[in-house]
Nucleic acid binder design. Sequence first.
DNA 1: TCCCTTGAGGAAAAGGTTTTCCGTCGCTAG
DNA 2: CTAGCGACGGAAAACCTTTTCCTCAAGGGA
Lengths: 339, 339
Amino acid sequence: MAGRQPRVGIVDVARRAGVSVGTVSKALNGRGQLRPETRDRVRAAAQELGFVPSAVAASLHSGRTYTVGLIMTDHHGRFSLPILHGAEDALGWDETLAFVCDTRDDPIREQHYVRSLARRRVDGIIVAGRRTEPRPPLAGAVTVPVVYAFARSADPADCSVVVDEEGGAALAVQHLLRTGRRRVAHVTGPHGHASVRARVNGTSRALREAGLELAGEPWYGGWSEVWGRFAAAALVREHPDVDAIFCGSDAIGRGVADGLRDSGRRVPEDIALVGVDNWLPTAEGCRPALTSVDLDLQQVGRRAGALLLAAIQRGGTEPGTHTVPCRLVVRASSAPAAG
Amino acid sequence: MAGRQPRVGIVDVARRAGVSVGTVSKALNGRGQLRPETRDRVRAAAQELGFVPSAVAASLHSGRTYTVGLIMTDHHGRFSLPILHGAEDALGWDETLAFVCDTRDDPIREQHYVRSLARRRVDGIIVAGRRTEPRPPLAGAVTVPVVYAFARSADPADCSVVVDEEGGAALAVQHLLRTGRRRVAHVTGPHGHASVRARVNGTSRALREAGLELAGEPWYGGWSEVWGRFAAAALVREHPDVDAIFCGSDAIGRGVADGLRDSGRRVPEDIALVGVDNWLPTAEGCRPALTSVDLDLQQVGRRAGALLLAAIQRGGTEPGTHTVPCRLVVRASSAPAAG
DNA sequence: TCCCTTGAGGAAAAGGTTTTCCGTCGCTAG
DNA sequence: CTAGCGACGGAAAACCTTTTCCTCAAGGGA
């Protein structure tokens, strides 16, 4: 199909409508002073000819492309796609389109993409990180506004939007306490991870505020179900009186749920569970369905998009790290204790 | 940052290097006849000035934007992201950038995106479907080549790349037979789904070729773990002698695995399991890890990208449906029966 | 009656490259 | 000595809109 017909341009429309090209532009964009009848005639001509104005030419003139780059580092898109959706919402999805660039964790590739985006004159760039470790800022002289989302830039002079992970952890723990739990343990990811640290802090803080403390040390491990299963078995052996476990991820949570069942503990009757990520396939596949802290990445994306838009319009981002709160999604795994 | 300095253009480079703009263009693009010394001088000037050529202006001239649209309909990106990766590989990720458009399953939105892409003069469009149901072709007069990936277009005159689902099912069954299984059952998704049908067909064919037949009817249900668990329990009751189950998805497979364990059957000792999708979080989280048919979507994307590229260069796609084979990824759930 | 104002639409510049077509210079060969 | 050629690089058109003046005509007020 589409046998390379020579594109119909604004001049063709002008000829057909019997007006000048300037008039066509005005008619189609609702600018200038035109008789309604002329406007209609032009619109009709454009319609009949199937005229599609070239955003390329328009960009050349206006200097704006209504285009942004989204640099993502998680190839599965679990974090970056919600961010993209939020950003689209904020930027006006019918106005601004996004180039999605998956760096595949290769700095060289990332550099390439940044250059590519610069050449294409994107209006701005959103960098969507993976886990919330601060990341090195984009290399090279970037001449457009950049907003880092989810993973903040290591340079505090950059503009970043992050999740309030500590607050999210507190939310989880407070919920567990409200359901009557008192002996809360914490099974989480690798020691040293920024988000692991934040969650430990939030957990401790919430417990302290309630006059309690963590049951044992946090259990550091991986992000996997296997680790969750293993940790659950060990945990009930070491702390048989635990009645709630806050898990650093849904995968861990699901592993813990299985591990507890294997150890003869019932969830939530004996032990309540809360995870993090609210990742539906895992949280809802869990037995029982897993209460989870939703990082609200879409909101992160919206915020990032709004900041980027402001930066584009004003020219230049204002530095600073913006924090978005988490939400708790309650499911069966944290139903109040029977007793 | 980026205090809206007036962009350095090719004329600035020309002035600095003491040559004309045409010469700068030639020097930077390695075209024309230039003294090496001139070339170097220009390159140096460009470097010093931090000149970044505008792809917008270049596109305006050449008519190509080195840009494609990727229309996706699965917001989680489980299918479309691998396709995007493959497409990038084929299109040259350092040449061509992709606008990613998530329709959120809204035809209006899709239309909007198509128009948006047309205005931006993308060189082509890839439509990445969800499950492999044929989908209605893009609405409106699309003037650039379109390739449908994963879900074929309902219009056979379009160009589509799909997975050989039937072959994939056969692969799974043949593998089960090779490990010594003889009584194979099939638990799958909703009756009527194109991919469900294809997998049933592939299953029957492979069994027939081995002189066997399916143990009972296929178990139609949903794509969820819950369905898998339920089906497993019912299945062992109704067909106690089954020694292998081919599951229509990894989620189902995982549910089946759990259901079997609950029913006191061991996987793989008593019953071997194979799933479809090779979706790591599910397949590897499964106990035991689930052997799975990998749809090789990246390959689908590569193929689609290659076809699109050819169409762009020649102007117009050649119609037809292209099929990409699946791969089997063997894990613990299908180890040979002990006996 | 004449000037001014307002409404409608045209002409042309601008935006940043690429590319084609020429011109010039320095040589070489006849 | 001159025609001709090769090497190098400049001038300008082309790509497609948008936007800023401008012009022209008609109508209104003094």
